[in-house]
Amino acid sequence: MTISASLLNAFAPTGTLRASINLGNPILAHRTQSGEPGGVSVDLARELASRLGVPVAFSAFDTAAKSVETVTSEAADIGFFAIDPLRGAGIAFTAPYVLIEGCYLVRDASPLTRNEEVDREGNRIVVGKGSAYDLFLTREIKHAQILRAESSQAVVETFLRDDVEVAAGVKQQLEADAARTSGLRLLDGRFMVIQQAMGLPKSRGDEAAHYLRAFVEDAKRSGFVADALARHGVKGASVAPATQT
């Protein structure tokens, strides 16, 4: 496909595709041994840059909120986020490329056994500040209190230190934390499905938004996303269904 000058300028006005990477979601991004960002998100950014014919540069952040702000303010050209209406005010999202489960973690001694029991007076839920779970639960929780840790990685540490009733986050992250600390368990099922998508500033226009949506659909259809999940050893996340562009 021929890349028009207007499309190239929309994606890479500096001549380089600047990608914002959220290290707060360990399923999709991480630091490699060399200190550089790696993971499914990074692979997608490199592939997009290759198709556009431009170099790629990464800015990595420890929280989704910082990553979102970087794209919204146009300090980066693309980012990788959970779809959320609040974020959609300044970001044009693609359809999701990966689906991830959000779950609750409690102590073995907790009386809570079902997700529906969490939203009750007297329960406190700790989440990563600005994460997809924070945004979702802020809208949905009516009776329990929401506490916010500095990052998603700090959720279980805060849950244990402050003797909070419930921790909320990515299922795989909570499972890994529970495996390192005895006396913890996940509630069965999930309280939400996180739709992980790509996005760019809305100010970049419809042509760029359409191209990015088509890119994600091709990455799903061709097996690129599935191969990236397998290559990085990602468990518990699935390729999102195809969507009409």
Score class of each variant (00 low, 15 high):
46 R>C: 07
46 R>T: 08
47 E>K: 13
48 L>T: 08
48 L>Y: 07
52 L>F: 04
52 L>A: 03
55 P>M: 11
56 V>G: 04
56 V>Y: 04
61 F>D: 01
62 D>M: 11
63 T>F: 04
63 T>G: 01
64 A>C: 04
65 A>C: 00
65 A>M: 12
66 K>H: 09
69 E>I: 02
71 V>M: 07
72 T>D: 12
73 S>R: 15
73 S>N: 11
73 S>M: 09
73 S>K: 14
75 A>D: 06
75 A>G: 08
75 A>C: 00
76 A>P: 01
77 D>T: 11
79 G>A: 05
83 I>C: 00
83 I>L: 09
83 I>P: 01
85 P>A: 12
85 P>C: 09
85 P>H: 10
85 P>N: 11
85 P>E: 12
86 L>P: 00
87 R>Q: 12
87 R>H: 03
89 A>K: 12
90 G>L: 10
91 I>W: 03
91 I>G: 02
92 A>C: 08
94 T>Q: 08
95 A>Y: 10
95 A>L: 07
98 V>S: 06
99 L>Q: 12
100 I>N: 07
101 E>S: 14
102 G>C: 04
103 C>N: 13
104 Y>E: 05
106 V>K: 00
109 A>G: 01
112 L>I: 15
112 L>A: 04
113 T>I: 14
113 T>S: 10
114 R>A: 11
115 N>T: 08
117 E>Q: 15
117 E>I: 05
117 E>D: 15
118 V>P: 01
118 V>A: 06
118 V>C: 04
119 D>M: 06
122 G>K: 04
124 R>P: 00
124 R>K: 14
125 I>W: 09
127 V>S: 02
127 V>P: 05
128 G>W: 01
129 K>C: 01
130 G>L: 05
131 S>D: 03
132 A>F: 14
133 Y>R: 01
133 Y>M: 13
134 D>Y: 00
134 D>T: 02
134 D>P: 08
134 D>A: 13
135 L>I: 00
135 L>H: 01
135 L>E: 05
135 L>C: 00
138 T>V: 07
139 R>K: 10
139 R>A: 14
140 E>D: 10
141 I>M: 15
141 I>S: 09
143 H>G: 00
145 Q>F: 02
147 L>P: 02
149 A>H: 03
